[in-house]
Amino acid sequence: MRSRWVPYATTPGRLVWQLVSDVLVIIWTVIWVMVGAAVHSAVSTIAAVGRQLNDGAAGVSENLDSAGNRADDVPLIGDSLAGPLRAASEAALDIAGAGHSLDTTASWLAWVLALAVAAPPVLALLMPWLFLRLRFARRKWTVVTLASTAAGEQLLALRALANRPLAKLAAVSTDPVGAWRQQDRVAIRGLAALELRSSGIRAAGIRWDG
């Protein structure tokens, strides 16, 4: 994980935290995807009822219409028999249409409800996690790139003078500002290492210039 392109820290503490956060995000996402799938499955049962109603009513309508056509052949009372059968066939066809509408609506609603249930909690955690990871990756790329040049190393040391605690600066040099002004390479490299470590990068993994 020493490459500047890998979005992970090389300091143990931050690396562990990043890996733990990755696992938590994955678990959280899987849980809510399963919840969404359960909602989709539950609503889809309504769509299945609609399909069964459509298929059954369409079959009844076809049989009634066929019976009406045969009733026409009955002498004298053929028209009287065929009329109610055709009316019943049309009613069954209307029921089939309602079943088809229920199937279509429930199928669409199953996806909408599944996304409505699963997406908000997933995005609520995923978006901040992604933002922090991208920000870390950008910072890592910047500081590793700076550390590869003498001028960048001095800039990192200057940032350390401005941002790091006094105790850590004193541990590098008794006069860190003077050492930086005098371009003391050892002190500058120590200060730059402080800034790298604050970004989650171990100085031991850096190819220093010179």
Rank of each mutant, 00 (worst) to 15 (best):
L76A: 09
A88K: 06
R189N: 01
L64R: 05
G59A: 13
A67N: 08
V144M: 15
Q182S: 10
N63H: 12
H100N: 07
I206H: 09
S41D: 15
G36L: 00
S148F: 00
N163M: 13
V33N: 09
S101T: 13
I77G: 02
P176F: 00
R4N: 05
W111A: 15
N63E: 14
L130N: 09
V20D: 06
V23Y: 11
G56I: 03
P12G: 01
V30P: 07
E195F: 01
L134I: 13
V39A: 13
S3W: 07
Q154W: 12
W32N: 06
S21V: 08
A157G: 03
H40T: 01
I201E: 10
A147W: 02
V33G: 11
L146Y: 06
A167Q: 12
L113G: 07
V186M: 01
A160Q: 02
G210L: 09
H40S: 04
S41I: 13
P176A: 04
A110C: 08
W180K: 06
P165A: 04
P84M: 10
E153S: 12
P75H: 02
L169A: 05
Y8L: 10
F136Y: 04
V49L: 14
L15M: 00
S41C: 11
A67V: 02
G200A: 06
N54W: 09
V16K: 11
L93W: 08
R4V: 01
A157M: 03
L24I: 10
L169G: 05
G200I: 04
K140N: 05
R197V: 14
L81D: 01
R164I: 09
V25T: 10
V6E: 11
G50D: 12
R185A: 15
A98C: 10
V122D: 02
T29A: 09
A87F: 04
L24T: 09
T142D: 10
